[in-house]
Design a protein around this nucleic acid. Structure first.
Length: 477
RNA sequence: GGCCAGGUGGCAGAGUGGUUAUGCAGAGGACUGCAAAUCCUUGUAUGCCGGUUCGAUUCCGACCCUGGCCUCCA
């Protein structure tokens, strides 16, 4: 099987065939740094991180460009409110977001582009659109794209502009020749941050920076352009319009959009103010847990972040690591090599089958429940024909594409455990003392006392396991 | 009004023209002093109405309903 990708442009699932064999040029719209990153940004960044990793897993040479839009109306407004220079303001949130993306476990894109570092490219782009009669300068120093000049407007979003009731908002701004025209360059109001241009002091419009950065870093044509679904219109539609007007060539071959984040069933948006900040999630949960939660979903569907999503994900991840940790020190030297190889091949095929189907990480995780169940079952037997350590290594290798389960299992478990202990004011020695005390009670068949000790610890999220070799403890997540 | 997505078992949520999603919760069992963990077994579903078909949850059409976009948004 080969990779199939749902292309929003054609509204079909298509075989993935890059423009140049073996090479993938991908651009995903990053963040306008007007404040703290939220879980929607986290979702989108993880989705495209995993797409990049899987393309590389398949052997493609991937060039992944991601941008920060670091100048726009909201940044200017928020910076003014904070009493900070907008450049410094944007920079602060850019660095903060970089650190959060690292903490989330995202690999660095090949290039992190910044709008303000591409002002010359943007001006050049706009000038070429003016020269080719696709744009015009208003009497007020703004530059607008002339929508009439591009006959394919709406090819991505299917918005129609020829009907009066099409629903497209028609801003009436002084200087616009047509209400549907959109700004490429905005003239500066007094005191606003601005750059020198042939049309006076001003700054880029919203959509142009992505077109200019694409051209600068990836060229006229790219394989994959991505972003959140909310960007399809008008942002991506306008990008296509600008870029294809300039080059006369198809801009992006595949358009990939991830779903949006809902919070307990309600759409998350800036206007509703119900956003969950990424930094708050990172303060409570580790990257494995967050990625597991986000990837246990098909990327194109909206993801509902319910109150129990993260806790449940943490339990699953913890259980997987527990299985991996339990394999430590086991001897599988007598295992059947051929049988083990067969199992490994089966796991790899299931993984690739799922990922080839439009990056179906949900299916990967569903299959993984079965793989871990298999290991647990075999481990519970007196003896097994399989080299479970090698099978586990393969699972971990495949999960590298999701960047989950990449920590040392024992260290991961210890970290989670010590976190719970700390929260409950306990130490491992305390628990050992309880267990010894309880062992005495058990020996005396003082079940009431034994149960009381067990209940006390459970109240502190410590659960005891009585086994043939004595009592062990674990955290109750 | 325009565009788009979707309606699946108690809940969440996939795939699939005829056969198991998966997870959580539930039931029974092994194990245990009783538990827990782990493992085994297990029940309930495809909005409504037509059509195509030997056969549709899966394709087509109508209807009902929900959600998103059409303002800044990943």
């Amino acid at each position: 099987m080969s990779l199939k990708v749902y292309n929003v442009l054609t509204r079909t699932k298509q075989d993935f065939v890059p423009l140049t064999p073996g090479v993938v040029k991908m651009y995903a719209c990053g963040i306008t740094v007007s404040g703290d990153a939220h879980v929607g940004h986290a979702y989108q960044s993880v989705v495209f991180d995993v797409i990049t990793r899987y393309l590389r897993y398949l052997g493609y040479d991937v060039k992944y460009v991601r941008n920060y839009t670091d100048v726009d109306d909201k940044i200017i407004a928020n910076a003014a409110r904070a009493g900070i220079d907008p450049i410094a303001f944007a920079e602060k949130y850019m660095h903060q977001t970089d650190a959060e993306m690292d903490a989330l476990g995202n690999a660095h894109p090949t290039i992190m582009a910044r709008a303000t570092e591409c002002i010359d490219d943007i001006i050049n782009f706009v000038q070429r659109l003016i020269d080719s009669n696709h744009a015009y300068v208003s009497p007020f120093g703004d530059v607008y794209f002339k929508l009439d000049s591009f006959p394919f407007y709406g090819k991505l979003s299917h918005i129609k502009t020829d009907k009066n009731d099409s629903g497209v908002r028609k801003d009436t701004e002084p200087g616009k020749q047509n209400d549907l025209d959109f700004a490429l360059w905005k003239s500066a109001k007094p005191g606003e941050i601005a750059w020198k241009s042939p049309w006076g002091m001003g700054r880029p419009g919203w959509h142009i920076e992505c077109s200019a950065m694409n051209l600068k870093y990836l060229g006229e044509q790219i394989d994959i352009h991505g972003g959140g679904r909310d960007l399809i219109f008008p942002h991506h539609e306008n990008e296509i319009t600008q870029s294809e007007s300039l080059t006369g060539k198809q801009f992006a071959k595949y358009w990939i959009h991830c779903g949006l984040v809902k919070i307990n069933g309600q759409k998350m948006s800036k206007s509703l103010g119900n956003g969950i900040l990424l930094k708050d999630v990172l303060a409570k949960y580790d990257a494995d847990t967050i990625r597991f939660a986000l990837l246990r979903n098909t990327y194109a569907a909206d993801i509902d972040i319910t109150d129990n999503l993260m806790p449940e994900s943490r339990r699953h991840v913890y259980k997987m690591y527990s299985t991996l940790a339990a394999l430590r020190g086991r001897d599988f030297s007598g295992a059947d090599v051929a049988k083990t190889d067969e199992k490994i091949a089966e796991i790899r095929d299931a993984f690739e089958h799922a990922m080839d189907d439009n990056f179906n990480t949900l299916e990967v995780i569903a299959a993984a429940f079965g793989w871990f169940n298999f290991i647990n079952t075999e481990m519970a037997k007196k003896s097994t024909e399989y080299d479970l350590a090698r099978i586990a290594d393969k699972i971990r290798e495949l999960f590298g594409v999701l960047n989950i389960l990449q920590h040392d299992p024992v260290e991961y478990i210890d970290n989670i455990k010590s976190g719970v202990l700390k929260q409950n004011g306990l130490s491992a020695a305390d628990i050992d003392a309880y267990i010894s005390e309880r062992a005495v009670a058990k020996q005396n068949k003082d079940w009431a006392m034994a149960d009381k000790i067990r209940a006390e610890l459970l109240a502190k999220n410590i659960v005891l396991h009585d086994g043939p070799d004595g009592t062990t403890w674990d955290v109750n997540l």
